[in-house]
Simulated scan of single mutants.
Amino acid sequence: MSNSPQKITIESEGYAPTLKRLRHISRLLDNAITIPGTEVGIGLDPLMGLIPVGGDALGLIFSIYIIIESAKLGVSQSTVGRMIVNIIIDALVGAIPMLGDLFDVAWTANRYNLKLLEEYLQSPGEKKQADQGFILVLFAGLILLAIVLISLPVIVIGTIWKTLFGG
């Protein structure tokens, strides 16, 4: 019988099914299809961004799911905070017509967030979970951001319509 410590892996801790699902979602959102002749991938996130009014909000909702699952796995408050900053950048810049869609191809927030999750789960030492109140406040803010991403285009389109057609 050996007294040497066993190496703890993500799989040995029972995270494998959740990580497999999150990896699949992240790949679909950020780089499902590789552009032939390049290493650039395009996922559903930039494509959803092309949908007027709610496309960017829909992408944000899928990104929030990855963070919710990460929080369930016990990631720290600082890791959740970094994940949220990634998707806020993605949502805000992605909402800019045309430029935002190009940005969404390059800024793969979901892949970055999955990397943060995996690094956290693989890091040795004591794990300090994020405070549930902190997570709740941040998610409320993200839902508010999704509402703004839907409302702003509606307001802008309405204003342009009234200006052009006097309606």
Rank of each mutant, 00 (worst) to 15 (best):
I96F: 10
K127C: 09
G43P: 07
P97E: 02
I155A: 14
L114N: 11
N110D: 11
L136G: 12
N110V: 09
L114W: 06
E11T: 15
Q77M: 09
T18N: 02
A130I: 05
R82Q: 13
N113V: 08
T159Q: 13
T18V: 13
V85L: 10
L144W: 03
F139Y: 13
P52I: 01
F62C: 10
K20P: 02
H24M: 07
P97H: 05
T38F: 11
S63V: 00
L28G: 11
I67C: 01
A16V: 07
Q129L: 01
L58C: 09
P5V: 09
S70I: 01
Q122Y: 05
D131L: 00
L138H: 12
I84W: 05
N3Q: 08
F139A: 09
R23K: 13
P17I: 01
A95G: 15
V75W: 03
G100I: 02
L144V: 11
G141H: 05
T9Y: 10
Q132I: 11
I66T: 11
S151R: 02
I8H: 14
N110W: 04
L102S: 14
I89D: 02
L138V: 09
L22A: 09
K20M: 03
V148S: 02
A130T: 03
L102M: 15
I68R: 14
F134G: 11
